[in-house]
Design a protein around this nucleic acid. Sequence first.
DNA 1: CCACTGACTGGAC
DNA 2: AGTCCAGCCAGTG
Length: 110
Amino acid sequence: MSKAAEARESDFRSLVLAVVARVPVGKLVSYGQVAALAGFPQRPRQVGMVLSGLPEGTPLPWHRVVNTRGYVPSRGRWWGAFEQIGRLRDEGITVDDLGNLDLEAHRWRP
DNA sequence: CCACTGACTGGAC
DNA sequence: AGTCCAGCCAGTG
């Protein structure tokens, strides 16, 4: 990979994390929205990859990022979905045991 | 280089 | 309203 490409990917990660860090308590954003705010509207999948690589103790509010369909990623097939659901409930968002929630009712609009 | 995969999405059925 | 399909881009073998 070229140095320019490496720098671009490094920026992508930094920008994505910066956007996620700005999401207010009790608000939700979709992966596509985070990608667009970071300046890469064609790469929602890469946003998911960045978040999947976060350490367990990260201060980032990654649990406020859900998909546009209105449910927590992988609906339980993913090992962290249960924790994400619990954190969202703690912030006052209604989520059922399958991870379904009302994205429009809590969407963050910067 | 090719094929497959994934914490995604919008549109078609 | 629930599912499926094609497009998407980077990571991995």
